[in-house]
Nucleic acid binder design. Structure first.
Length: 580
DNA sequence: GCCGTTTTCGGCCCGACTGTTTTCAGTCG
């Protein structure tokens, strides 16, 4: 089993223990172990036979090593199964609702036998929550809203999860002789932040009509399949254990481009493209572009030849949303979208000084390996007590160490001193201006001010960016995909004011964050607000997540020129808001 | 359940916010 799945089992066990109000410290060690498993670079299945090696991972002791061995052997662990008899698996889903913790799940179960989102919804509409302690009007309304938001997103998966699932399947399919090209289509290819299901298109000699059956059988024999939905002539559909639905289509080379175009969507883009085809006497299907009068073949092997036959430049999948991309493709004015390799630095990251997992030096080395020219170390400030946030004195010491590492790197990379300072309830920052003045990169972030009225929330953030030392606004909307809609904030007003002040707004590239949606990013570009894209890395491996954020920027039509950290080190600093 | 020991058990990042209290529990980061 892969590390991610092991981590998930451990973390679910922690949740269940918490619902059963187990020993809080025992619960914490399950969570810590889950985190450790997730972030270790060692593949656990490779060392599962050796309990000593497992225990070398910090957070894994004797008992947890045994648990992991049991998971490898049996696919689950006894404690979890035991708890799932007592409680219901659907309770884990309840925990995902905003404001729902283990205590509330336990309460609803004991008092009302409510164990799922659907049952909770019914209980609310029947007014059964009213008699429960701690649940007044506001709490109930919050839950109602939370369920609504949850239902909007449920059944969708974060882009990185979908991509990992796609990569594994692709590696498996590649082992079959005669399969040459495999590509994900659908919303994954368009770079949507979440995907509903996975569309994989396959071609090669093995997909020719007369021989495709063997390749179809091979696909249907993919070991991780949890539930085979359908196996047809050239299509296999199934669910993975995560619930993600996958459709694999095996197509002859001649129609591969047409299929890729068709299944990449979006729906509205395709409608417009087909209308255009009809106007020119063609008809476009997932098999080919053909003449209307006699059905004769015009194009189909590649997307390029199809778009070209319609008088269009090839359109990057991220732009296929019927937002003017056809007009631009016709006039040859499609933008040169930003690419991963344009990014020269990641300027929001944490170290062991607060809640990061690596040292300053380790982060710097990892950034060198990625080819970056600079990074900024921006640990938390004291208001985030649980992260061991820095106060003025510690922040000053930390800057000193950052400068030392910067010198150690001897120009291989620049390491800028910075801080992610917290915005307090009154819009003030929790470190002194004297200290902030020492930092190259001051990111002001909202962290813990949920459930404020929108006007209040917006006023606080606007107040915070008036502080002349603030150079970047960190996770400006605070949204967490699939879990919560985000802070209630007038992001338009914030972006406009940031533009006036010269404060950059951050797009957090981490897949469950992806702070700004494409609408916000387009607005930022429109009003001249500077944008910086960062991963908020708490571990060297997190820097990899940059590519998911890049897709969002591309979807918003952004180019290299629109993003601050595509600049070389000196120019980057110079482009930040000038210090007083 | 992990860790670090004064090796055998005690300590384990904690403060802010909210809504419900009438002194606090639950959730969040």
């Amino acid at each position: 089993m892969d590390n991610r799945s092991i981590a998930q089992l451990l973390s679910e066990t922690a949740d269940l223990l918490e619902i059963g109000s187990g020993d809080p410290f025992r619960i914490r060690s399950y969570r810590r172990a889950a985190e450790a498993v997730e972030s270790t670079t060692v593949q656990l299945s490779a060392i599962a036979g050796d309990a000593k090696k497992l225990q070398e991972i910090p957070g894994i002791g004797k008992g947890m090593a045994a648990n992991i061995q049991e998971i490898e052997k049996a696919g689950t662990l006894p404690l979890r199964e035991e708890l799932l008899v007592k409680y219901r698996p659907s309770m884990l889903e309840l925990l995902k609702l905003p404001g729902m913790g283990p205590k509330s799940v336990a309460l609803f179960w004991e008092a009302l036998q409510v164990s799922s989102v659907a049952e909770l919804e019914t209980a609310i509409s029947e007014g059964k929550l009213k008699d429960l302690p701690r649940f007044g009007e506001k709490q109930i309304e919050k839950l109602r809203k939370g369920i609504e938001d949850y239902k909007k997103n449920s059944g969708r998966f974060l882009i990185d999860e979908a991509e990992v699932a796609a990569e594994k399947l692709i590696a498996y399919l590649r082992t079959f002789p005669g399969i040459e090209t495999i590509e994900p289509a659908g919303s994954l290819r368009r770079g949507r932040e979440t995907v509903g299901d996975l569309d994989i298109l396959v071609t090669g000699p093995a997909c020719a009509e007369d021989v495709v059956q063997a390749a179809v059988d091979h696909t249907a024999a993919y070991p991780p399949i949890a539930n085979l939905i359908a196996k047809g002539q050239n299509k296999v559909s199934f669910n993975l254990r995560s619930g993600l639905q996958v459709d694999v289509r095996l197509l002859p080379k001649g129609s591969y481009g047409a299929a890729l175009q068709y299944f990449s969507g979006s729906k509205m883009h395709n409608v417009t493209v087909r209308q255009r085809a009809l106007k020119r006497g063609y008809t476009l299907s997932e098999y080919a572009l053909a003449r209307v009068e006699d059905g004769s073949f015009v194009a189909g092997a590649t997307e390029e030849e199809i778009y070209a036959a319609l008088g269009l430049d090839w359109i990057p999948p991220e732009l296929r949303e019927n937002n003017g991309e056809l007009e631009a493709a016709e006039k040859h004015t499609l933008p040169f979208l930003i690419e991963q390799r344009d990014i020269r630095g990641d300027v929001h990251m944490h170290t062991v000084a607060t809640d990061g997992k690596n040292t300053i030096r380790e982060m710097a080395d990892a950034a060198v390996a990625r080819g970056y020219e600079y990074i900024a170390i921006t640990d938390h400030s004291k208001n985030l007590a649980m992260t061991n946030g820095l106060d003025d004195a510690r922040a000053l010491e930390h800057i000193q160490r950052i400068r030392e590492v910067d010198a150690e790197m001897e120009g291989q990379i620049r390491v800028f001193p910075g801080i992610e300072v917290d915005i307090l309830g009154d819009g003030e920052l929790d470190l002194s201006n004297e200290v902030l003045a020492q930092m190259d990169v001051v990111i002001a972030s909202v962290h813990s001010l949920f459930n404020q009225p929108e006007a209040e929330m917006t006023a606080r953030v606007l107040r915070a960016i008036e502080n002349p030392y603030v150079r970047i606004l960190g996770h400006p909307t605070g949204r967490l995909l699939l879990r919560r809609e985000g802070y209630q904030i007038d992001i338009g007003a914030v972006i406009r004011r940031a533009a006036e002040l010269g404060v950059a707004v951050e797009h957090n590239a981490y897949p469950d964050r992806l702070d700004l949606c494409d609408r916000d990013l387009r607005l930022a570009k429109e009003v001249g607000c500077k944008i910086s894209i960062n991963t908020d890395a708490h571990h060297t491996s997190h820097m990899e997540k940059m590519r998911y954020g890049i897709k969002q920027l591309r979807r918003a039509w952004l180019t290299k020129a629109d993003v601050l950290n595509t600049l070389p080190a000196k120019e980057f600093l110079a482009a930040l808001r000038p210090r007083p």
